[in-house]
Every structure is written in structure tokens, then in C-alpha cells.
Amino acid sequence: MTDESLLASLRHHMLDENEPLAGLLRKCLLLGAETGSDSLRQWARKELNGYDEGDELPSYRTLPLPPLSADTMSGNSWATNMTYSVLQLPAKGREAVGDEFLLHQPVEELEQIATKKSPSFTNGPLSYAEHLWNQELGPFQRVMNLRFIFSGSMFAGVLGQIRTQLVDMIADLTAHTPLAELPRKDAVDAAVSTHIGVQYNTTIQNTSGPAAIGSNAVAKTVGLSIDDAIKLLDSVQNASNDVQDESVKSELLACIQDLRDELQSTEPSTTEIVGKVGKLKAIAARVGGAGLSSAVSGTVEGLTTMVMSGAFG
């Protein structure tokens, strides 16, 4: 397969809703190999093979918790498929279950689940919550087979988001690279960094810095310089004052300083900047908070755009 046919094939087939998503992801594996982009290969491989426990999941692989369903016994009476809210679980059970349902399955398994009308799931934390609940119930009362009941359309939505991330990445790459050529490794890495699991809510209106405009806004970056990038880092540092955990705050400030040092070096390295931006995103995701998330999103957007425009060596 030639370089032109690979990039052209992805661009041609990615908008065809009948084109298997797994096939497009396998083309991404090959594109990642030919461009040297480990980040693209890793993303495509994880989507195809599934994510390991403990992996950081892209945001589109987390679902809000649906209602619970259970079978119950009270004396001689039995009832099936009773519906409950997660809020009805004991406090320790709610804590164990958490606020989100994580999807580690391979894409092809998600496709099978999406065909079901009401797929149900249980897991270790939910079984533990069931045990705690039964301890609180009176004699001859019991809750059994506690499970989450989803709509298959929710899984179809996840698959749609994966396809959209792929479309966005390929659109970025083909906008700056002739189909007869391979995109640069740093451009591919930047496209993955920009689109996987991050939704931006900051706009950069001019070269004096970012202005937050809310969660539904589109990020735009125009003519950023190194000085502008430093100002973006300053906004993140200012937002870090709200971080309560001192150890995490120290890690965040160290990451900001590492990025600042790289940007101010004689020859900033694209590879180093992409890696440090990824670390900054990961730390911010652990911390949360609207102010910090907004500042980090704007900084990531600005630095990623600079990387894709070839601003660094």
C-alpha cells in the first residue's frame, strides 16, 4: 500500500457510516507505524483490543450511571426487575460504585452491545453495594441480582464519538498534508493529543492571552508566539491556587515549570512539548475544577496549534 493510498483511503472511508470502525482503526495502526506516531498506534490499539483496568480512559468511554434493577424478596413475596436509584444504596456502596460507568471493552464488543435494546451489567463494586444493602435490610428481606440497565443507544453514541474523533484527526492531518505525502510525526501526535478525550472551552481572541467563554464554545487560536504560550502557562499557574491537595499542586507546578523551561530553551523540542502537554492534561483531569480545567484547556489548545503549525523544532 502506498503512502497516498493509505491517507486517501482513510479520508475516503471515514465518513461512510457503513464502513466498519475496526477497519478504520487498523488503518490508523498502520498510519501510526509509518509516521512513527506511537500515540496514534496506542490509541488505535486500545480501541481495538480494549483498555486495561487502571488505564486512563478517553472521556467518551465514561457513561453516567443509569437506574439500577434488582430482584427482591420480602417474606414469601418475590419481585423481579424492580427499579432503584443509585442514591438508594448505602453510603459506602455509593462510594464504591462511583459516579460513572467505565467502558474498557474493545470496539467490536461495544458494537455488539449497541445492538441490544437494554443491555445490563454488574461488577465488583455493585456486588459489594448489594452486600452492604442486604446487611441493612430486616429479617426475610433481600436484594438480589443488582445490575445497571442501559439503553443500547448509549453505546451507539459512544461508537459515534469514536468515529467523530477519527474524522477530526484525519481532517486536521489532510488539511495540512497532501494526500501523496505522509504527515509529520509531531503533527500526528498533536492531532491525537488535541482530539482524544478533551473538550475545549476557552477561546484565544488575540495574542494577549485566553478568555474563558463557557463549556459550549469553540476554541480558536490565532498567531500565538512563545510569549503568548508563556502567558497561557501563567493562567494555569494562577488557577493552581485553588488546588487543595498540596502534593498534586506541587506536581502541577513542576509540570508547568518544565513546560516553561522547554518553551524558553534555545531550541524547543516538539516531542518534549507534546509529552509535557499530555502530562499537564492528565494532572488537571485528576484535579478537576472549572477554573483549572478552563485554563489548562486553553493552554493545551494553544500549544497544540503551535505544534501542528511547525513552531518548534
Rank of each mutant, 00 (worst) to 15 (best):
R142D: 09
V143S: 00
P178T: 04
T122E: 10
G197S: 03
P119E: 04
D172H: 08
K116S: 14
T115I: 06
K185L: 15
V188E: 00
T203Q: 12
V167F: 10
F155L: 04
L126S: 00
V143R: 02
H131M: 14
S118L: 13
Q205F: 14
S120E: 15
A191I: 01
I213F: 08
D172S: 05
H176C: 10
A190S: 07
Q135V: 07
T177D: 03
V192S: 04
I162P: 00
S118W: 13
A191T: 01
P183S: 01
G157V: 02
G197W: 13
T122N: 10
S127R: 15
M154L: 14
T202H: 09
L137S: 05
N134Y: 04
L126Q: 01
V192Y: 08
I170S: 00
R142S: 13
T164E: 15
G157E: 03
A190F: 04
F121M: 06
H176L: 12
A175W: 09
L159A: 03
Q161W: 00
L159K: 05
T194H: 06
T207E: 14
P183Y: 05
L132A: 01
R142C: 14
E181S: 12
L159S: 02
G138E: 09
P183W: 07
G209V: 11
R163N: 02
S118F: 15
P139A: 10
G138S: 09
L137K: 08
E136N: 10
Q112K: 15
P210G: 09
P125N: 01
V188D: 00
H195N: 05
V158C: 01
Q165T: 15
E130H: 06
L137V: 02
D172L: 10
N134M: 06
G138W: 10
H195T: 01
P210Q: 12
L159F: 03
N206A: 12
L146M: 09
P210K: 06
P139Y: 13
S118D: 13
F140H: 14
R184F: 04
A190P: 00
R142N: 13
A175M: 11
V188R: 02
Y200P: 01
T177R: 05
L132Q: 09
A175Y: 09
N206P: 00
W133R: 06
N123V: 04
S118E: 15
D186Y: 15
F155A: 02
N134D: 08
E111D: 05
A211T: 12
G138F: 10
L146Q: 03
I162S: 07
P125C: 01
P183V: 06
S193R: 15
F150S: 05
I170T: 00
H131I: 10
V167E: 11
I204R: 04
M154E: 14
E111Y: 03
D186R: 13
Y200C: 01
L132D: 01
K116N: 11
I113T: 11
A212H: 08
P210I: 11
A129Y: 02
I204M: 04
G124C: 04
F150E: 03
A212E: 06
N206K: 09
N123M: 06
D186C: 11
G138Y: 09
L159G: 02
Q205W: 12
A129H: 03
F148E: 03
L179K: 05
G160I: 14
L126T: 00
I113L: 07
R184Y: 03
F155N: 01
G209L: 07
S208I: 12
D189M: 06
L126F: 02
Q135S: 12
I113Q: 03
P139K: 12
G157T: 02
V167Q: 13
I162C: 09
S127E: 13
